[in-house]
């Protein structure tokens, strides 16, 4: 179980990205985080694996105090949490194989990994995970010769290499054509349902939230303004989260 208590983050320039945010996530949930751009979704996800240092507050995950961890302990926590990014964050010039293998770096011993030496098991897992996202035939091509949707699937395969107990997905479909959104989210759903991985995913479109999430939270200007079931977000809630100007739109 992931427990966030009174989380605050103020950036050096004075921006208050998170204000006293508290919530819990049970194991096996698919939690959607919604809110406008700049509402603090990315900051929240990055605080959970400490890519961003929270200013105050406490995060505990399965009894481990994440906020108190230092040095190699942080890395041991991180390697159990997969992350998927809006811009895919692949190394464009490296092969798909290398990109996926790099998901194993948190486990691999340092010196051999610097010379690109990984265990046979790791290499087998690369093939298995690429097969799972349907890109086994692309194993040797350079990442930048893939389409956006394919790159994001490589990103998922990389996260799977970590054998994660939880996956953080930061707007995984925002840089893709809307028609590809479902294909990516179906993979996340598969991780959640078949492998039992907890998924915390920030999303823009409400109908995607309805379709995939088991629970949702909403942020506005760094405050937690809603938590509950996706279907509980009615028009009134919607206006509160997105502002009066907002209109509901749907993706295919």
């Amino acid at each position: 179980m992931l427990k966030i208590e009174n989380l605050c983050k103020t950036y050096p320039n004075g921006t208050q990205a998170l204000n006293d945010v508290s919530f819990e996530v049970e194991e096996g949930e698919f939690l959607a985080v919604i809110g406008l751009s700049g509402s603090g979704k990315s900051t929240l996800l990055r605080c959970i694996n400490r890519l961003i240092e929270p200013t105050s507050g406490k995060i505990t995950w399965n009894g481990v105090d994440v906020t108190a961890a230092t040095g190699s302990d942080i890395r041991k926590i991180r390697r159990q949490i997969g992350m998927i990014f809006q811009q895919f964050n692949l190394v464009k010039r490296s092969s798909v194989n290398t990109n996926v293998l790099s998901g194993r770096l948190g486990y691999a011993p340092t010196i051999p990994s610097l010379f690109h030496v990984f265990s046979k098991e790791d290499h087998d897992n690369v093939r298995k995970n690429l097969d799972m996202v349907g890109l086994l035939d692309k194993i040797d091509v350079r990442a930048d010769s893939l389409s956006g949707g394919q790159q994001q699937r490589v990103g998922i395969a990389r996260a799977l290499m970590q054998e994660p107990k939880m996956v953080l997905a930061d707007e995984p479909v925002a840089s893709l054509d809307p028609v590809l959104a479902h294909s990516i989210l179906k993979y996340l759903e598969k991780l959640n349902k078949e492998y039992g991985i907890t998924v915390i995913c920030s999303l823009h479109f409400l109908d995607l939230v309805h379709r995939y999430a088991t629970r949702a939270i909403a942020l506005k200007d760094g405050y937690l303004v809603f938590q509950g079931l996706p279907k509980e977000i009615d028009d009134k809630q919607f206006k509160q989260i997105y502002g009066k100007e907002a209109e509901r739109i749907e993706v295919i």
Binding site: R78, M83, V91, S102, G106, T110, M161
Partner: peptide, 14 residues
């Protein structure tokens, strides 16, 4: 990519 490798738990050299 730096962020991504950090998120997998890679250390400074990795």
């Amino acid at each position: 990519p730096v962020e991504a490798i950090e998120a997998t738990g890679g250390n400074f050299f990795q």
